[in-house]
Every structure is written in C-alpha cells, then in structure tokens.
Amino acid sequence: MNKSKNFSGHPIIKQVLNFILPKDVPRTAKKHNSDRYTKKFITYEHLATMVFTVISGCSSLREVSSIMLACEGKINHLGLTDFPKRM
C-alpha cells in the first residue's frame, strides 16, 4: 500500500492545523512578544483552542472549557499540554 498525502482518517481540526507550519507560531509569538507573561497557556495552545471552538460551534467560554475537558483523551493529537479550566 502506498501512503497517500490525502487527509483520510485525520480529524478536521488536525487537518486545519497542518496548514500552519509548526515553526511559524513560536516565531510569530516571539516577534510580537505574545508569550511574555504566560505561565501555562502558550500561543499555540490558544490557537488550537480557538480553531477547536470555531469548528465545534461553541458560543461561550464555559462551553469551550467543558467540551475540551470532556474530550481530553480524544484531542491528544493536538499536542495541548494545558486545557482551559472553568473558574
């Protein structure tokens, strides 16, 4: 079997994030100093969370945090180390 470059079998969010080069996000974050005061939730994790929010159709922060915490095992492929927590 040949390995095709089509996105068959990949989740939609991973397909969208594959269009963004992995080195571009940290480089841009460093250029604009966006990770200056962060402790856990870095720019790439924020980007992945916002893409997830748009694709899943969430309308509130509470909805985003509850869905991401519920799907924690199902979205390991995104490389997120910290999830938005509900306060």
Rank of each mutant, 00 (worst) to 15 (best):
M1I: 06
M1C: 07
M1F: 06
N2D: 15
N2H: 15
N2F: 14
N2A: 15
N2S: 15
K3T: 15
K3A: 13
K3G: 12
K3C: 12
S4V: 03
K5R: 11
N6Q: 05
N6W: 11
N6P: 00
N6F: 11
F7W: 14
F7Q: 14
S8I: 10
G9Y: 05
G9K: 04
G9M: 07
H10T: 11
P11C: 02
P11E: 05
I13Y: 01
I13M: 01
Q15G: 01
Q15C: 06
Q15S: 05
V16Y: 02
L17P: 00
L17V: 01
L17I: 01
N18R: 13
F19Q: 05
F19T: 04
F19A: 04
F19H: 06
I20N: 02
L21D: 11
P22I: 03
P22G: 03
K23P: 01
K23R: 12
D24P: 00
R27A: 08
R27V: 09
R27M: 10
T28A: 13
T28M: 15
T28P: 02
A29Q: 08
K30T: 03
K30A: 10
K31E: 08
K31I: 03
K31S: 02
K31N: 04
N33Q: 13
N33T: 07
N33K: 13
S34W: 12
S34P: 02
S34T: 15
S34H: 05
D35N: 15
D35E: 12
D35S: 06
R36D: 12
R36S: 14
R36N: 11
Y37H: 15
Y37M: 15
T38F: 10
T38D: 13
T38M: 12
T38W: 05
T38K: 13
K39C: 04
K40H: 13
F41R: 05
F41H: 07
F41Q: 02
I42K: 08
I42V: 13
I42R: 05
T43Y: 14
E45R: 00
L47T: 03
L47Q: 07
T49I: 08
M50Q: 06
M50K: 06
V51H: 02
F52I: 09
F52R: 01
F52Q: 03
F52G: 00
F52C: 09
T53N: 06
V54L: 15
V54G: 07
V54Q: 10
I55T: 07
I55K: 07
I55E: 09
S56N: 14
G57A: 04
G57T: 03
S59Y: 07
S60N: 07
S60R: 06
L61S: 14
L61E: 12
E63I: 14
E63P: 02
V64D: 00
V64R: 01
S65F: 02
S65R: 07
S65W: 01
S65N: 03
S66E: 10
M68G: 02
M68P: 03
M68I: 12
M68D: 02
M68Y: 08
L69V: 09
A70D: 05
E72W: 04
G73M: 07
G73I: 03
K74V: 03
K74R: 09
K74L: 06
I75F: 14
I75N: 08
I75V: 15
L78K: 01
L78P: 01
L78D: 01
L78W: 00
L80W: 00
L80M: 15
T81A: 05
T81W: 00
D82H: 11
F83T: 02
K85C: 10
K85L: 13
K85N: 11
R86Q: 08
M87W: 09
M87G: 08
